[in-house]
């Protein structure tokens, strides 16, 4: 879709309210019967996409389950290298971001653009905080001690011969989750930019807000399971 620059002089002088991307003026694609049908289709599509994401993570959870079943000692020993306090903090950060993004959808539904922008900003700050905690307090110190996956493993004080496998599952699981954090944050940034620039979302047009929010909730859902599985083993 061609994006239209709100600052172009050839637009009507009435300002943002008459802008084609302003939510009141949004139409729907020609092959749908009405905007509602389009909204439902987009949402259905997003839910289907979320199922694919869940099954993607199912592979990691499966590897986790199998190796935990085969090598429980390695998993216990490996988990002791993780600090539940950072994991718990990150859980809280993500839960709050999930709440703000849900509130953001609500703001869009109510037509409160300022609240939408506020909520999205808080969500993005939470996303940044999550990544920061993950990197600064978890990945970097651990990697510098040699607690790394597979052949990169160089930590001399391992308790169990399968600890490198634990680290493989840990880094792949949290790494792919972190990738999803970035994708979700990217989507929300896109929504935020359009909300700020065009007031693009309102009671009759908030598909993009809703679907991006669904994606962000998925990031939270995955972490809800990853957190106890990785941090709370004993």
């Amino acid at each position: 879709m061609a994006t239209i620059d709100a600052n172009k002089p050839d637009l009507p002088a009435a300002g943002a309210k008459s802008h084609p991307l302003y939510w009141k003026n949004r139409g729907f694609a020609h092959h749908f019967r009405n905007a509602d049908e389009q909204f439902d289709a987009c949402k259905l599509g997003m839910w289907l996409f979320l199922t694919t994401e869940v099954l993607l993570f199912a592979g990691i959870f499966c590897a986790y389950a199998i190796f935990r079943m085969l090598y429980p000692e390695a998993w216990t020993a490996g988990s002791h290298h993780l600090d539940w306090r950072f994991g718990g903090l990150n859980t809280i950060v993500l839960l709050i971001s999930s709440w703000t993004v849900a509130s953001g959808v609500r703001s869009a539904q109510l037509g409160n653009n300022a609240a939408l922008i506020r909520n999205l900003l808080i969500t993005l700050v939470c996303a940044a905080l999550f990544v920061f905690i993950k990197l600064y307090f978890e990945y970097i110190p651990k990697l510098s001690m040699g607690k790394a996956p597979g052949t990169f493993f160089s930590y001399p004080y391992a308790h169990d011969p399968h600890e490198p496998l634990w680290w493989s599952v840990y880094y792949i699981g949290t790494g792919i989750h972190a990738l999803h954090v970035f994708i979700g944050a990217g989507l929300l940034t896109w929504v935020l930019v359009r909300a700020i620039k065009y007031e693009a979302y309102g009671p009759t047009e908030y598909t993009m807000v809703e679907t991006s929010a669904l994606y962000w909730h998925l990031v939270d859902l995955v972490w809800i399971f990853l957190f106890p599985l990785l941090y709370l083993i004993h």
């Binding site: 849900a102 929010a213 809800i224 399971f225």
Partner: peptide, 13 residues
Amino acid sequence: ATVKAVLVCAYFM
């Protein structure tokens, strides 16, 4: 975790 996930799905999502 399942209870939490159900809550997120049911209300937030």
